[in-house]
């Protein structure tokens, strides 16, 4: 035994063992336990009772809220991608050619380091229908003042806009790093061949930035699919905004588990959510896998 432990074969495993142990206890075990729990009914107070696939059947066939939350979650995740990623890319590109880059980076990354509760509170005041700054400005222009956080048709859009503002700095930093890694000689060569600014952006920046874009899109999508912190603070005390209009699957799962004590059903929701994120990520990888210099 001692001989095996001191052998070269065992060395990597010995060095890796703390990480493996950590992953087994804090990742594999909970995942397997959640899979088992999703097939039971369990309130954490009494022993779980075996249910088979009934939790999944309830979610797919009976629960009137689950699919609503899935669509709303997709709307949030895709909305933040569609608005946030191009905006961050364009700003990062503009900043890479601007003076005082450090100052601009600080300005745009400040929201990222600001506490989310503070951010939500500020936006709650800005977006208040009667005396909020935004509606006061709209009033000066003679425009109506919608209930940004109280109208069910606008609640999720408001959450998307606040989230995009919050995450803009992080995405910009990632794109800036990606832009800095593109060799300037490509731009010089293309310019000498007569390429304009738009051509440079479309034919050099975008293709060579594909790995960064892929990373930003996937990580934003995954975090968007399981996100609900902002909604908790932006719509306090509600069940996910007015008429549940900003209720995401993550928050619904939380309510099921810790307010209704339906931990089995909540585990089933987590597995369905995982499946959705997994499939969507595979699709994104398939669509955007090739990119960067390797493509050329």
């Amino acid at each position: 035994m001692l001989q095996f432990l001191s052998s070269k074969k065992a060395a990597p495993w010995l060095f890796l063992s703390p990480v493996i142990l950590f992953a087994a206890v804090f990742f594999v075990l909970p995942v397997v336990f959640a899979a088992y729990i999703s097939l039971t009914t369990w309130d954490s107070l009494s022993p779980p009772r075996w249910m088979g696939l009934k939790n999944y059947q309830y979610l797919f066939a009976t629960d009137p809220i689950f699919w609503k939350t899935v669509w709303q979650t997709l709307y949030f995740a895709l909305g933040t991608l569609v608005l946030g990623v191009p905006l961050a890319l364009v700003l990062a590109y503009a900043l890479s050619r601007a003076r005082l880059q450090g100052v601009w980076r600080v300005v745009y990354t400040l929201p990222m380091v600001t506490n989310i509760v503070a951010v939500a509170f500020i936006f709650t005041f800005l977006l208040r229908p009667t005396d909020g700054l935004l509606n006061r400005l709209l009033d000066l222009l003679g425009l109506p003042g919608p209930g940004w956080l109280t109208d069910p048709s606008l609640a999720m859009l408001s959450a998307i806009l606040v989230f995009v503002w919050m995450e803009l700095g992080r995405n910009m930093l990632l794109f800036s790093a990606g832009l800095n890694s593109i060799d300037q000689s490509y731009y010089e060569a293309a310019s000498m061949d007569g390429a304009g600014a738009w051509s440079l952006f479309r034919r050099i920046t975008i293709p060579l930035l594909k790995p960064t874009i892929l990373f930003v899109v996937i990580t934003n999508f995954i975090s968007g699919m399981s996100y609900f912190t902002l909604m908790l603070v932006l719509f306090p005390g509600t069940q996910g905004g007015p008429s549940r209009a900003a209720l995401t699957t993550g928050q619904y799962m939380y309510q099921m588990a810790f307010e209704d004590l339906r931990l089995g059903r909540a585990s089933a929701v987590s597995y369905v959510l995982f499946a959705l994120v997994f499939v969507a990520t595979l699709v994104q990888l398939r669509l955007m896998r090739r990119g960067g210099l390797e493509e050329h």
Partner: peptide
Amino acid sequence: NDQGNIDVGGYAYGTT
């Protein structure tokens, strides 16, 4: 108010 939003409500419910 001018925008049609209620300044003083005759009756109110809550969010919770």
